[in-house]
């Protein structure tokens, strides 16, 4: 763990860099952007993962294993690859605009890969599989008699979801949020490939490091990013316990 210690020591020894990072400006914006994007991606991916996770945990249907493999496949993809896949679909000559062009005559979404939308979709692309797999494991432990008991007590589907399933699954939801959030915070490859104007902290670190050779600021940004990630992760993990 010495590189981290070295990083922290280096950043603290030049406290000027820290002040620079935390005061208003590009660096702080990048941290705020990372935080906002990661939070949004975490919530949206968990919301979208609820149904598939429940289906995988509860239902048996033909092709289940194939579908499950397809959903969890992106877990193995690194960020640059995900970025590329988003370009493949939503780039200026991506598959979606080409298809839209064939059908409607206008190439919708062309180049949206390089907008905030594209970046967000890329985050979802690698977060949803994580969220589905984590939640599935939790849902599998949900005792079926609990749901049956709620039904026999007169609870309809919505009441059951709100009053039984979700409260029961709350710890799992929080730990899933923690997993997806910290993965998003550290995501570098996606932004490297897709980001044009919108900047996130890992990208800023890279720029400082390679373009401006500003090691102190890069180090300070790293420490700030790690602290933010770690802090929120712990916070969510505590609610999950």
């Amino acid at each position: 763990m010495w590189p981290l210690a070295r990083l922290a020591a280096g950043a603290f020894s030049s406290s000027g860099a820290f002040l620079q990072v935390l005061s208003a400006g590009r660096y702080r914006t990048s941290l705020v952007n990372s935080l906002a994007l990661s939070t949004a991606a975490a919530f949206v991916s968990v919301a979208l993962a609820l149904v598939p996770a429940w289906v995988f945990a509860r239902e048996r249907f033909p092709g289940r294993n194939l579908v499950r493999t397809a959903v969890s496949l992106p877990l193995t993809f690194s960020g640059v690859l995900v970025g590329f896949l988003v370009i493949v679909m939503l780039g200026r000559i991506g598959a979606v605009p080409k298809l839209a062009g064939l059908v409607t005559g206008r190439e919708w979404f062309a180049g949206s890969a390089f907008t905030l939308t594209g970046l967000f979709l890329a985050y979802l692309y690698f977060e949803i599989p994580r969220a589905v797999m984590t939640l599935e494991a939790a849902f599998r432990h949900f005792p079926p008699e609990l749901d049956a008991a709620a039904r026999s007590l007169g609870a309809g589907p919505i009441t059951r979801l709100l009053r039984v399933t979700l409260p029961y699954a709350a710890p799992a939801l929080f730990s899933t949020l923690a997993v997806t959030f910290s993965a998003s915070m550290g995501s570098f490859g996606v932004a490297l490939v897709l980001s044009r104007r919108f900047t996130v902290a890992p990208l800023e670190i890279y720029t400082e490091l390679t373009a401006f050779l500003n090691d102190a600021v890069a180090g300070a940004l790293c420490v700030a990013l790690a602290a933010l990630t770690f802090g929120v992760d712990r916070l969510l993990a505590r609610r999950a316990a």
Binding site: P143, E145, A148, A149, R151, S152, A170
Partner: peptide, 20 residues
């Protein structure tokens, strides 16, 4: 008629008390 509309009380083997 779905279970929740039958007005039938049930005691489960595991009791299935809501832990929260």
């Amino acid at each position: 008629v779905p279970a929740e509309k039958r007005d039938i009380g049930m005691v489960f083997q595991s009791y299935a008390l809501f832990p929260h």
